[in-house]
Design a protein around this nucleic acid. Sequence first.
DNA 1: CCTGTAACCTACACACATGTATGTATGTGA
DNA 2: TCACATACATACATGTGTGTAGGTTACAGG
Lengths: 205, 205
Amino acid sequence: MTTVAASGPGRLTQAARRARTRGALLEAAARGLSRDGYANLVLERVAREAGYTRGALYHLFANKEDLALAVVGWVEETWFAEVGHLLADDTDPVGALVALARGHAVYCRRDVARVMMNLAVEFSGQEHPVGRAVESVGRRIVADCTRLISAGRRSGAIPPGPRPRLLAAAFLGALDGLMIHLSGQTRFDVLLAERVVRGVLGLPP
Amino acid sequence: MTTVAASGPGRLTQAARRARTRGALLEAAARGLSRDGYANLVLERVAREAGYTRGALYHLFANKEDLALAVVGWVEETWFAEVGHLLADDTDPVGALVALARGHAVYCRRDVARVMMNLAVEFSGQEHPVGRAVESVGRRIVADCTRLISAGRRSGAIPPGPRPRLLAAAFLGALDGLMIHLSGQTRFDVLLAERVVRGVLGLPP
DNA sequence: CCTGTAACCTACACACATGTATGTATGTGA
DNA sequence: TCACATACATACATGTGTGTAGGTTACAGG
């Protein structure tokens, strides 16, 4: 019982405390980035919302940039775990793309979903590590979608048109824009997301 | 010739000087807002890009907020002059909406187009005069589109689905997202914009 | 010309947010 | 229980950007 360290009710091991604090700060930072973006994000507020001070924040993260990068990584992980895995199904490309759109719509019901879109817009055209990280995630998703669209073209399920790479970017952009403007509206989000995919791909309703 | 004031080559009347300087500052600010958004916009750089100093800027505009509001007003004007007037045509609702999408795609080829999207994202959920101005423009366009969609529903040109107000917001959101992710790509932008409209409205390709 | 006014620039004061350095309490292992 | 490391708070230094005040040049009317 030396390593477990007297697991009383309020007693936590160092690693557990660290993980809990880090998680709270990450979550608060994600909410903050969703609301205010990177430039307007003030670390004092992030720390306070998590129940700590900036001291704790700078103990867990090197700086503001490092914190934002951690949030991006965290969002990327959860997104791929909940939605992105649908992109692995190569047997039914159109079905997978539609499922992705529907899944993304559901994912976007959380406020955290705005993080990536916010940062993508804020850093577009800039040379900033956070912007690069966001773009990297975007490129990864675009690449997966491109593969599916190409497969759909070969099988004849998707009609001819712009090349797959461009179509994938267009599809994801339109989907993102849709979800942004529909924030809070959970009644028809899935239906509209599906309509957008089919529309961009040139499929009938 | 007292009022015209010796119109030599370099000689300008006061009002003309003022208008020219104001225009240059507005244009530089619009480019700046397109690139950096509001928070990251630094007035020193805006003034320098226009060929002046911050002194001139503060002589022409009350403050940063006032400058941004002027830019929003300017973009609103040019957009309605070039694209928005298409919304007045009530005889063919679907045709008008498609024309709007195509026109918006062309309009978005300019970098200035990102201004509204940038500011909308940055101030979404905030209580800021600039954000309110942007939202006001958005509401105006949504209202016009809603009217057209309702007309299309009544005439049977648009199939049933979510209520017109929501459909209009979805359509414009998807269109904006599309144009953002397609920036620079002028080869298929119009085609894809049209596909998005038809898709969201539930029309066949 | 010559005086007032408008356009514009330079210099300064202030606010605010980041990052760092230092201090304190709590957990960890011998 | 003692020495040490870790989690976290407080206080300070610095940079950067906005807004303002005081000058300088160009225009306008008598």
